[in-house]
Design a protein around this nucleic acid. Structure first.
Lengths: 321, 321
DNA sequence: TTGTAAGCGTTATCAC
DNA sequence: GTGATAACGCTTACAA
């Protein structure tokens, strides 16, 4: 392992001069630079990145905490974060959490230990106040509306769009509305927003038996559908948490030889397009970009991005040839 | 910034003893440990991760080079890699490449600079021999069949399955087969495998005008469909590179009010299920797991995972209620 | 323009 | 059990 000292010795110059050459700084004469560069080339030397980071006190690593890797919310968010990181020479480190408090705490401790320059929580199990406490060790950004907790955040403003969705259902005369959510309202801002919007539009909370939580995959959604069917809960419509999950629901109804209720998707996935579902695009890529910007700038403040209800394109007529 | 020296001084013990306490090693008396721990707690001290890495000469970071973030091949592979990394305390660092040689080279140089303990190329633009040259600086794993290049690899064995796919088409009497690929055969092992399989089954190479490359997104696929249609290329079937891309193709035909040809998907995506397409599951999650194992073990050798042609479930009868 | 030397904060070896 | 001290490999005042 050849190091900067070796280069200094063999070239006959000092470590600092070698360092200047390495970092393309000024105040090095052309012939000195050339002489040193020659030794560098000769020994096939490259500086050690970790030593550099230590000396500079900065890693250019941003940790991104992800409960799951296979959910569109997270992949889209990650996509945005990567995009933003890419143009700034920061590196993205993936931190799987499964909403596990011990793991999340570990990542916060890693930040404290300077393993990352900043941390982005795409979602979290720990209370916001717990995260907030670690901000003294470095920038921490969350991807939800933090309400009264003064923590930097970039998030999709969903409430108005959920209201749009329920208004659509109301206009169509639907009253018995199923709701699919990944986590229950007490811990999930998203779920809370759906409940609030339902209340605003219909004047009542959603019936508890029509709300299914812990639905993340299409298979989960299929099970939720099985539940609705076997419990003989006659639904007019279901607000699903993802177009793909709507597919799972549909599967359940089809297997029971029933026509599914009117479905609204989320995430603007391809499966929704195929099925001609209305969907909600939360613009998570953009949210990711903003989250990253907040993280590296160290700025405080919240950035809300408006969601959007998208109605399906009319299905084209197919001419049989 | 309080460091190990501070703890040593304030506790009255030496740096080495403090280090032993930090690393939960033996040979420290209980009362010494307690005394030191008290100072640690009092000063709210944690060791610096970067200094640790430097001293140990290891980062526990594995770099994963990804041309795109939004393609199922990469997300599934990444999913597997994360899963494997998670259970071994390694961290996954995302390295976007866009098949850009300069970027790929930069990542290889980063490996050389010890920024990562190992590197996984999910795909690459640089020739294998170029990657192979950097193996002296650390383990490098690719996710394709490297054939005669002696570089560690985990990959989906696609050839036999592509043959199955073409056999299916042949049995159905189809002869004019379109093919969608992300990159042309000279640089893409995947594309080569499709061509070879076509040759094996039909005895001829695919007609050049029926092969569309540079197709990665559904929109690209839609453009490919536009091409087939406007060029009046009557196709019996199309082997698409992804169920989602099949959706794009389908969109093109529908917009031209035509019935799409018989479509075969890939990646076993939900959109394919909805459309009832045959699809090819390449088991990329498992490939990712194996790739990671190779990377951290530093083993040499190749691991091939068999792909699988999946036929659609029969569409259920729907009873109108 | 170049050199000296003091950091950066650990871990590891070896002596006691 | 504990402590000196030398790595680890670089950056950066400050001096010359």
């Amino acid at each position: 392992m050849t190091n900067i000292r070796d280069i200094a010795q063999l070239s006959g110059y000092s470590i600092s001069t070698v360092s200047r050459v390495l970092n393309h700084q000024n105040y090095v004469s052309d012939k000195t630079r050339a002489a040193i560069q020659q030794v560098i080339d000769q020994l096939d030397y490259v500086p050690n990145a970790v030593a550099r980071d230590l000396s500079r006190g900065k890693t250019f690593n941003v940790g991104v905490v992800l409960p799951h890797a296979d959910h569109p919310y997270f992949t889209q968010l990650l996509h945005g974060i990567m995009q933003a990181a890419f143009s700034t020479n920061y590196r993205v480190v993936l931190l799987p959490s499964k909403y596990n408090a011990t793991l999340e705490l570990q990542y916060l401790e890693d930040l404290r230990q300077k393993a990352y320059d900043a941390l982005i929580f795409t979602s979290h199990g720990l209370p916001l106040t717990a995260l907030n406490r670690y901000r003294r060790y470095g920038p921490i950004v969350v991807c939800e509306n933090p309400h009264d907790c003064p923590i930097p955040a970039a998030y999709a403003e969903r409430l108005a769009t959920y209201q749009d969705a329920f208004e659509l259902l109301k206009q169509r005369g639907y009253r018995h509305i199923g709701i699919l959510a990944s986590r229950p309202a007490p811990v999930s801002a998203t779920c809370q927003a759906m409940v609030t919007a339902h209340h605003t539009v219909f004047g009542t909370d959603p019936a508890p038996e029509l709300m299914r939580t812990d639905v993340t995959t299409p298979s989960d959604a299929q099970r939720a559908g099985d539940y609705y069917i076997t419990q003989h809960l006659k639904l007019d419509a279901i607000l699903t948490n993802g177009d793909d999950n709507a597919v799972g629901l549909r599967r359940a109804y089809h297997q029971h030889h029933q026509t599914p209720p009117f479905l609204i998707g989320q995430e603007h996935q391809l499966s929704g397009e195929v099925l001609g579902l209305p969907t909600i695009d939360h613009h998570f890529v953009e949210v990711g970009i903003k989250a990253f910007d907040l993280a590296v700038s160290g700025q405080t403040g919240n950035i809300a991005i408006a969601s959007q209800l998208l109605l399906p394109d009319p299905q084209p007529q197919i001419k049989r040839v």
